[in-house]
Amino acid sequence: MKELKLGEKTYLNKISFPSFERIKKGSVAIIECIEDIPCNPCETICKFGAIKVGFPITSLPILDEEKCTGCGKCIPICPGLAIFVLNYNFSEKDCLLTIPYEFLPLPKEGEKVKCLDRDGKYICEGKIVKVIQPERNNMTALVSFAFPKKYYNKVRSFKK
């Protein structure tokens, strides 16, 4: 049976990733918004003016990678839950990915997890580093988890 695969090039090529030079410098937003949906809360919420949607409102968000501080304010506001923050320099071996997480129970800091790709396929082992409780973000929790750097562009979620 034919399946939708979001890890395929047709979809990945539509994502405007920050340059690898910028990624190596530290925390930065990765916006995986690839369709002309009329939507721009990411632009409105960014204090640093790092995200531009502009006119028309269906334009894809463009990240000014020099202005982005990787603060993560845009993660929980995105209705598509399509924004992640990557800290490539988390440790010598691992990078750290922060994702919006809207399930219970929330993982615990230090917990070992299985890292999954965009299609939910197992990629590698990882570890929960930080869980920001939901109240502040209007019910969306932010979970940061660490995994080997080489999968920085593959891993997008986890399961217990």
Partner: peptide, 9 residues
């Protein structure tokens, strides 16, 4: 984006 939300889990 809605598909991606369920696919990655």
């Amino acid at each position: 984006v809605h598909a991606a939300k369920i696919k990655r889990f």
